[in-house]
Design a protein around this nucleic acid. Structure first.
Length: 687
DNA sequence: AAAAAAC
């Protein structure tokens, strides 16, 4: 277990009398406040798992000015505290061109150089990456065992010289961190390498073997792969620093086992003392016990987010718009674009429109990207406000090459729209994003916060939009009730248009709706079916009843996608989801066949409503991998899908009687009478 | 049937 790896750290004295059972291991320690340094900033040494601990330290003055001393990078060099080459890389105008440290950077620097374990929470876009890279690279330089000298132009570093490992939840984020690390390390002789999935394993390994490695950055799967394989020659016998970026994500259900396994491949911390660093903008209370088990007792908890504050930016106006139907989502997005472009054309001093549109499933991103591409083609490219916008798409079902291309293209582009799944939700730094638009209630509070954080970075402005079906208002309130989101009932009439009717007037909104309808009609039927099924999986519990949810999805399929009738759901799937007796559910196996036929005759055959055919590359191929459970349930007895449901949210348990019941929202509901307390803490403070 | 992440 994670905890055992940490038990022999610095505080082994404290550990000696601790009970060995997991549940009580840390509970015997007393709370202790170590530092409370600024009105808006907290640093604490955590020893406690006692609830209500935060009350003891909540003595900061309520309002304002960050009394934290402003620190310059240059001073760190003058003091001889940080290597002069590193400082030059950071400060030189032709390089990173940074002058002053951000709060999180200056609050964690000395702790990390000292060797303490640190959990740091700071808002999105405030320089967390540099906060852990700078001291970590300095620590490697300080290590007397590290030789950065060269023979000619060749490094003498071996692949077994890895001193620090950084784990990231996504490939693109790992690459982004590596780019920044190489900038900081330039000219120091320190070697930075990456290990992520979707790339040639062999060539990556050869590069590490040839050049050596001090700092390795990667994603869980590939790291596990190469560290567990003795043939790779890549090992980390001298590793003394482990960094979890987006730590709460890496410690949640999906990733924790991988992280645990990776820790098992690292040197025994009782033999080689290891520093562990965790960074994130969100630290929900659910992960705190895992944090405590993974960090040394007495670790520093640095927060630059005030206790009573939700970790979103006050700079970002956030709006929620209620939609009449799910089919109104795309017209509403189009209306946001048009409204903004009209204001720009009117002479308002606005930056070029650069937006990320988030969906909860990959298939939705595909449908939206295809539809907007259809629409864009119908404009005269480059001459109209919409035609000049680049339409891009990114999700995990694309090939890695396409993912990289989209991300790079969006990063470089001054304007455009990126239709994205949650691959880009965390950590990604696309410069100058003006809008973050989220369609549908995000799966949890943290997801909302991180997506929103793709805008208003590094002191810039931005705006946040959330488009939600009116029937999801209860779900919205329970999941996002504490976030300062304002209702906007005026800006987007397209969100409330009745799309079952052909518009008779000639208003701008009617035009927007009919344009979008035509563009959606031309999207391939396979994508529409997958979108329906994808949404089925994510939103059914958001509505007050399954019947209601099905009705809403069917309406989108017909009135929005322009399809004849709702897609067929396989009987077994329907039963699994407790949809067997729900009115409106179209039970049958026709959808699969339809998609397979459509996929195999790849160049169409379906009418595409006057638009040129959208490119199908990548998606349909990848789509076969996991969706629609082809062979996915082989080996499981019927009705037991091996941990498919998280427990408690399957409606079919009670013989299909599920009408009116609602899913538990992963415990963040507050009306369940559970012993977990009223709700999870956004700030991670009131644990 | 629903993000992500290894071949």
């Amino acid at each position: 277990m994670l905890g055992t790896l940490r038990r022999f750290g610095v505080s082994s004295v404290l550990r000696a009398s601790a009970p060995r059972t997991l549940s009580t291991r840390w509970a015997s320690q007393l709370p202790k406040v170590q530092a409370l340094s600024a009105s808006s900033v907290l640093t604490r040494s955590l020893h406690s798992s006692f609830p209500k601990f935060s009350a003891a330290v909540a003595q900061e003055s309520t309002e304002t000015e960050p009394s934290q001393k402003i620190e310059k990078f240059a001073e760190l060099g003058e003091q001889g505290f940080i290597d002069s080459t590193i400082i030059k890389n950071i400060t030189h105008p032709s390089r990173m061109n940074l002058e002053t440290m951000t709060e999180v950077q200056s609050m964690t620097l000395r702790e990390i150089v000292k060797g303490d374990d640190v959990l740091a929470q700071a808002k999105t876009g405030t320089g967390k990456t540099l906060a852990f890279l700078l001291p970590t690279l300095q620590n490697i330089l300080n290590d007397p065992g590290v030789d950065v000298s060269k023979v000619g132009r060749y490094s003498r570093t071996a692949p077994s010289e890895i001193r620090a490992l950084i784990i990231s939840p996504t490939r693109e984020l790992a690459e982004q961190i590596a780019v920044e690390a190489k900038k900081v390390a330039f000219g120091t002789g320190l070697i930075v390498q990456t290990a992520v999935g979707g790339t040639q394993k062999r060539s990556g390994l050869m590069k590490i073997q040839r050049e050596g490695c001090h700092l390795l950055i990667g994603t869980p799967g590939r790291l596990k792969d190469i560290l567990s394989d003795p043939w790779t020659g890549v090992s980390a016998p001298k590793l003394n620093t482990l960094i979890l970026d987006e730590a709460d994500r890496l410690l949640d259900q999906g990733f924790a086992p991988d992280i645990k396994e990776i820790q098992g491949f690292l040197p025994d911390p009782s033999k080689i003392d290891r520093q562990t660093l965790m960074f994130s903008a969100t630290v929900p209370r659910e992960v705190m016990s895992l944090v405590r088990q993974t960090l040394k007792p007495g670790f520093q908890f640095v927060q630059t987010v005030r206790e009573d504050e939700v970790p979103t930016h006050h700079r970002v106006p956030q709006k929620v718009v209620w939609m009449r139907g799910l089919e109104n989502g795309m017209p509403a997005v189009l209306e946001i674009v048009k409204n903004y472009q009209a204001r720009r054309a009117n002479g308002e001093d606005l930056r070029p429109f650069k937006a990320i549109v988030y969906y909860n499933s990959t298939a939705e991103t595909k449908c939206a990207a295809d539809a907007f591409n259809n629409l864009r083609r119908s404009y005269d490219v480059g001459t109209t406000p919409l035609g000049e916008l680049k339409m891009l798409e990114i999700n995990s079902r694309l090939t890695q090459a396409d993912r990289t291309r989209s991300a790079e293209s969006f990063r470089r582009s001054p304007s455009g729209i990126l239709f994205s799944s949650d691959v880009t939700a965390r950590g990604m730094d696309f410069p100058d994003v003006t809008h973050v638009i989220q369609v549908g209630v995000p799966r949890d509070t943290e997801t909302y916060i991180h997506r929103l954080g793709r805008t208003a970075r590094a002191g810039k402005e931005g705006e946040g939009w959330l488009l939600v079906h009116k029937g999801e208002d209860v779900c919205f309130r329970s999941r996002l009730g504490r976030i300062p989101i304002k209702e906007d009932t005026a800006s987007l009439p397209a969100a409330w248009a009745d799309m079952s009717q052909q518009a008779t007037d000639s208003s701008a909104t009617s035009e927007t709706v009919s344009q979008m309808k035509a563009a959606m009609a031309a999207v391939g039927p396979t994508h529409k079916i997958k979108s329906y099924m994808g949404q089925l999986g994510t939103i059914i519990g958001n509505f007050s009843s399954k019947r209601f949810a099905i009705e809403v999805l069917n309406k989108q399929f017909v009135d929005g996608f322009g399809m004849e009738s709702p897609p067929q759901i396989a009987p077994r799937v329907a039963q699994q989801m407790g949809l067997g007796k729900i009115p409106g559910v179209n039970i049958g196996t026709g959808s699969r066949r339809m998609m397979e036929e459509n996929d195999s005759s790849s160049s169409g055959g379906f009418s595409r409503g006057g638009f040129s055919r959208g490119s199908d590359h990548g998606f349909s191929r990848g789509g076969d991998r996991g969706s629609f459970s082809r062979g996915g349930d082989r080996g499981f007895p019927r009705g037991d899908r091996g941990g498919f449901s998280r427990g408690g949210d399957r409606g079919d348990r009670r013989g299909g009687f599920s009408y009116g019941e609602r899913r538990g929202d992963r415990g963040d509901r507050g009306d369940r009478g559970s012993s977990r307390g009223p709700r999870r803490a956004l700030e991670g403070l009131d644990f």
